[in-house]
């Protein structure tokens, strides 16, 4: 292990000693490729799923034991009407963080087809009205970002670590950057 770390340090050292423009440009391009392909995958998923954020990390324990902090959910937003029992991700005006909870009540207007829904976290005692904006009784379609259709445990734990401990983010980005510049194709 220590030997490998020494190797890595020596790599970085030789890298800076033998730095030349051609190499620098080639590395900038490969870094750009990585970033842009990640962006392409994300935007592609947005188109396929019809949701503005196709993957979300569960940030609270309000859906336990089904979903725990750090699990990830895949969202899909179709034109199908919202119905009771669906797990939806919604935004509340004046709140930054979207919430993942279950629809427990649906009223769909006969004339306009507009829906009014009420949500609740499976692990919470009461419904979500205290979480909604002041005086808001129902969620409408415009608040809903997508419904959860797929689930993977633990995968988002890094995100949780990064939001809880900001220095983890710095270490991680530093390590990745080091990997990119020391790897010689």
């Amino acid at each position: 292990m220590i030997g490998y770390v020494k190797d890595a340090v020596r790599d970085v050292h030789t890298y800076f000693k033998t730095l030349n423009v051609r190499q620098l440009i080639s590395q900038a391009i490969s870094l750009g490729l990585i970033v842009s392909s990640a962006l392409m995958i994300w935007k592609g998923l947005m188109v396929v799923t019809g949701s503005e954020s196709p993957v979300v990390v569960v940030l609270s324990g309000s859906m336990e034991p089904g979903f725990r902090r750090g699990d990830i959910l895949f969202l899909h937003m179709s034109n199908a009407p919202i119905r009771a029992g669906e797990i939806v991700v919604f935004n509340i005006d004046g709140r930054d963080i979207p919430i993942v909870h279950r629809v427990i009540r649906v009223h769909e207007k006969a004339e306009t087809g507009e829906v009014e829904v009420l949500t609740k976290g499976d692990n919470n005692f009461g419904d979500d009205r205290p979480l909604y904006a002041q005086g808001q009784m129902w969620l409408n379609r415009k608040h809903v970002m997508g419904r959860a259709v797929g689930y993977l445990p633990y995968v988002g734990i890094v995100t949780i670590l990064m939001t809880d401990y900001p220095y983890v983010k710095i270490i991680l980005i530093g390590a990745l950057g080091l990997l990119v510049i020391t790897s010689k194709d």
Partner: peptide, 15 residues
């Protein structure tokens, strides 16, 4: 109902 084409009210649940 005449007002609402769909009403769904959850009245009981269990995990």
């Amino acid at each position: 109902t005449p007002e609402n084409a769909v009403n769904q009210v959850s009245v009981w649940d269990r995990i």
